[in-house]
Simulated scan of single mutants.
Amino acid sequence: MFRKDYLLRMVEEMTEAIGKVFTLKQQRKHAEALSELDELLRRNFGLNSSLLNSLPAEDVIELFRFRGIIEVDNLQQAARLLEEEAYIYGEKAKVEGIDDEERQHSLDEELIRLMKSLHFYLYALNHGANPKLLDAPDRAESILELTKEYERPARTEKQLAMYREQQGKYDQAENSWYRLLHVGGEHPVNYRHDVQAFYERLSELEDAKLETGGLPREEVEEGLAQLNREMANG
């Protein structure tokens, strides 16, 4: 009960701060809006935006480990703040009169934060976060739509594959694994055992569930056979 009340208080505080940030954005007070979010990160988590955006995602996640467990509900709150930062930079890029270099910088900062936020949302959802606390599923889908033209980091693509499987969207999960093996990723061989385990999990499901998930049994068997051939050939 204490932890639930604690989380709700944090969410209420964050919601209030984001409302203030929204007003500052409307007034084009972008620096003040960013400062407000940075202060909330510092106060709630002892972190700051610069640290969250400079460290690799895996290292940031470790900062949320307490007594051996990643506090995923806190992580998704940090994701929400980074997401809001991204939108501020997106608004900065639209300001008339700024030069091309400054506009591109703002767009780059927006994308960095959207990708990092997406990774944290997916990781949190894959590891037991409360999906209703911040509407994280809807927020993740929104960011996926906003960033659909960009290649996702391999670590994020893996989280997306796991999340799609969790949702029962097996065809979309397979698409993410395919991208890791054949399109992106510096070391696709590292993901072969993950993909093999994915197909083996699906092979244990009923035909009707596979059909509903968009990946009929014959396609599962075909995918696993193809992967086994690739692994045999090195």
Rank of each mutant, 00 (worst) to 15 (best):
E186D: 15
F198T: 07
Y163K: 05
L8F: 08
L51E: 12
L40E: 10
L40Y: 08
L224W: 06
A173E: 07
L75E: 07
E85A: 09
E91S: 15
G223R: 06
L215E: 11
G185K: 05
I88A: 11
P131Q: 04
D100Q: 12
D99P: 05
I98G: 06
E157W: 04
E36L: 15
E149D: 09
D73S: 04
E32W: 02
D100F: 09
R152M: 04
P131T: 06
K94D: 13
F198M: 09
Y123L: 02
D194F: 01
Q77A: 04
L63K: 14
F198V: 07
G97Q: 05
N190H: 12
A173S: 15
R201L: 09
W177H: 07
A136Q: 02
R65V: 06
I112A: 06
L133F: 01
V195N: 03
L51R: 10
E36S: 14
R192C: 08
D73M: 00
A232L: 14
Q77V: 12
A31T: 08
R3E: 06
L181H: 08
Q167I: 04
L7R: 02
I70K: 11
K209D: 14
L41V: 08
H127W: 03
K4W: 07
G184F: 03
K4A: 12
R3W: 04
E110Y: 06
N175K: 15
E101D: 09
N233A: 15
L180A: 01
E62D: 10
E151Q: 05
E141I: 07
A173F: 08
E71F: 02
R164V: 09
E91K: 11
H187R: 14
G184C: 07
Y89I: 07
V220C: 01
E71R: 13
F64S: 09
Y87N: 09
E165A: 13
K158P: 03
I143N: 00
G223W: 00
E219L: 13
L111S: 02
Y6E: 08
N48Y: 07
K158G: 03
E13D: 13
L37R: 02
D138N: 12
K92L: 14
R28T: 11
F198I: 08
A129D: 01
E219M: 11
S176M: 10
L180G: 02
S54M: 10
L146H: 04
Y191H: 08
L134S: 01
V21M: 12
T15K: 13
R113V: 04
S142C: 00
E16Q: 14
